[in-house]
Design a binder for these strands. Structure first.
Lengths: 358, 358
DNA sequence: ACGGTCCAGTAAACCGGTTTGCTAAACCGT
DNA sequence: ACGGTTTAGCAAACCGGTTTACTGGACCGT
């Protein structure tokens, strides 16, 4: 029997208060259209019935969901395990809250991102790490929902949040070069889908270009065989370092493309009896909160993770009802190197005699 | 002019295909009700118009949102910055994805949790860290949405996910006692709202009871003046440790109620020139992923963060249409101590002579 | 006494789907 | 040829709000 006591609707309130549905709606949304005492009476009756407007019905009628979606090609569980992502999401959340928007995560549903996008009821989409070539972005564009691409070198006319990866990476490598390092190991982020790794837009390619430029300035080449790839996690960092070590590599410095991987490398090195930074220098990328807390504190390339999130929300919000400004609406943030304790001059035993090419 | 090319609706498709709206709906949801070729034709027309059923309209009609909400009293930005939360959310996401549900975060909107709850369109709510006394849980219960309380000693008849805090804490303290420690500093988690800290249900109280029980077994009392509170973050840990130190405390062991705070304590201690674990032992709580990567690796109390999230989803799902089982639907997970490198025997200089009470 | 503004509130259309009868035709066995 | 059962599809109600156009009365100045 007990039919779960159906929640009261606007019609119930209207009936009970002896007014029309419209009046009830006005009482909550535009009280100035009603006399003060009518409003009071309606609100009274409503709270007596503990009426709560159904958010879904409201969304349908207003054709607004008051929600922004964060879209990622990875499964949510890997996303949430990734502190880089957490910091970005924190930024999104801050700006969304300020704008009165809820945050929803859109990630592959039963393996299909496309399906997830269809199911998602959002007013705007923040797509992170999604190449501009991904089919889903076509789908999003067609759907007419405002969107912004984050961390994916986008077509020049796509709204996007970017970061100056190349000069950040360059600064990192230059720092090591100045400390006398000549023998590097690069730990890169493997692309989500095989094959995409070759494309120059992928973050690993961009950063690698920076590393190489700085090395080239000192007359050194970073060959492909000293770059090793893995997932952007601490485990990934351990694994990558161990693989390189087993491969016979004995670098004096590690250039990791994510702090998480750098932390993994730190640990792997320690387990091999290497002291950081005395025997090995390590520099990361991202400047996560934890980077200050590692031992030694991590030298890394700073990028404004939270700010990126906030700015993404802003872009997507006023990309809304037919973007006002005709400009591309892209935003590139600067990066800079933060020198902490994980880098030092190259150990004397490993110092290379300057060659007499000059 | 250009009216943003209104998306095509079910009516458009019906018209174009020369069938009724119902037929279109059937073609997608219950194709067996239509002849195969009609289905094919409708689908064809639909994809030609690139029709995509409006998820909001669907939600309204079905009265299901296919979404679970994670509700927290803290603002989203602090949530996302907290790795403990990330791991829990990862668990939720895993189970939600498996069940075909989206995940939405519900947190104070413009400072009001109640408002956020009203706005949220979800089929179930996972409330974390929300005391059973919080007014919002009354609101949720009245709304009729299935819910589950996490990490908050609930009334016995509330669906809840719990963890055996007390015995975990007890094991941690017992470990230190066995190593000869007698002088402790307890770093606890400060309650979200002032005043709630006194209640015995608060997590800090539960864990403190465990610590005290183990200490009492060895005839030592942990007085209130050696417990210091702060937010559950690395900064909070630093701050708490420094405060205690400034206060003149010189413990040989730290019992931190969260790994994040333990990491902060680790750093603060190092900055004061203390070696861990030689001069100071530290044990955390949570067993976050990072706990394995600190230096030294952190001895801590393990709790199954991800599993908690998964189980929460399960409970909330089948708490759905009038819960089948009449039982309370609570689930308590066990905890256990994981000994790693941050604890060691008390330094000789600090060893207390056993008193001759015996 | 009269036309014009305001004011308070209403009726009905609408948002875009789903779902419940219902019907007409096809099929069936006898 | 006939009643009974499927089958394929339709019309209309419904989900629970918002919003637009309209109305009747009060108030206003002249």
């Amino acid at each position: 029997m007990e039919q779960a006591t159906r929640r009261s609707t606007i019609a119930d309130v209207a009936r009970a208060a002896g007014v029309s549905k419209a009046a009830v709606s006005f009482a909550f949304n535009t009280p100035e259209r009603l006399s003060t005492d009518t409003v009071a009476r309606i609100r009274d009756v409503a709270s007596g019935l503990d009426y709560r407007p159904d958010p879904v019905a409201r969304m349908l009628a207003q054709r607004r969901t008051w929600t922004v979606g964060i879209l990622t090609p990875q499964a949510l569980d890997v996303i949430f395990s990734n502190p880089y992502f957490g910091e970005f999401a924190a930024g999104v959340a801050t700006a969304a809250e300020a704008a009165g928007l809820a945050v929803q995560f859109i990630s592959p549903l039963h393996g299909s991102l496309a399906r997830a996008v269809d199911r998602a009821s959002v007013d705007g989409i923040i797509a992170v790490g999604l190449g501009a070539d991904h089919p889903e972005i076509g789908q999003i564009r067609r759907s007419g929902i405002p969107y912004v691409l984050v961390d994916s070198t986008a077509l020049p006319d796509e709204p996007a949040i970017l970061v100056d990866d190349e000069s950040g990476a360059r600064a990192a490598a230059a720092h090591l070069v100045n400390l006398g390092h000549r023998s590097f190991l690069v730990i890169g982020i493997e692309p989500p889908s095989a094959g995409a790794g070759a494309e120059p837009a992928w973050v690993t390619s961009r950063r690698l270009r920076g590393y190489r430029a700085a090395a080239a300035d000192a007359g050194i080449a970073i060959q492909d065989d000293v770059v090793v790839l893995g997932p952007a996690s601490m485990e990934g960092g351990i694994e990558a370092f161990q693989r390189a070590w087993a491969d016979g590599q004995r670098p004096t410095a590690v250039l990791a493309m994510s702090d998480a991987m750098a932390i993994g490398a730190l640990r792997a090195a320690r387990e091999l009896g290497l002291r950081v930074p005395a025997d090995l220098s390590v520099v990361g990328f991202d400047d996560l909160d934890v980077a200050q807390y590692t031992d030694p504190p991590l030298t890394t390339v700073h990028q404004p993770n939270r700010q990126k999130g906030e700015e993404a929300v802003r872009l997507v919000i006023d990309g809304g009802p037919r973007r006002k400004s005709p400009e591309p609406a892209q935003h590139q943030f600067a990066t800079h190197l933060v020198v902490r304790g994980s880098t030092a001059v190259v150990p004397p035993s490993r110092q290379e005699v300057p060659d007499d090419r000059s």
